[in-house]
Amino acid sequence: MTSTRAEVFEQVRAKYIGLLTSILWKLTGDRELFTEAMQYALLGMWQHVGKLNGKKAHAYIYRIALSANSKAWRNRIGQNGELSHNHIGFDKSPDEKPDRDELDILVRREICRLPAKQAKAIVMRYLEQQDYQTIAGKLSCTEASVRSHVSKALATLKSRLAALT
């Protein structure tokens, strides 16, 4: 039984390692965070390997990747979920604007706090630039649902970033 599961895991790992790498790199943008997130993702794949051979495999991979990313970010910034301003050089005066790299970090950080469906939708639509039809197919939902998740995610990100910047 164990060897069968390990064999399935090997197949799944080989099939999705490229996708996981791409998603996690875009979500972390940092080698240390990436390394940690990748380890959590592999652990997630192992735990849910039975679900990764069916029709919804893609949706599960995104879920595993986002969950792993959140854990890695939580380890970095602490359990209270508050972003350390010092960590990204944010100890600036109120009228100083963050630069592009700092905004990228903030956005990545806020994506990991979105509800799962919104996070998946925003990652697929913007970070991976997939069209709505493709996303709907992969998430097994309608295009309208995807648009709704993306729209809500953008609004959430906008308000959170406005508060932070």
Binding site: R108, Y126, L154
Partner: peptide, 9 residues
Amino acid sequence: IEEILKNIG
């Protein structure tokens, strides 16, 4: 925000 997201992507 869209621009930042695309840039990350």
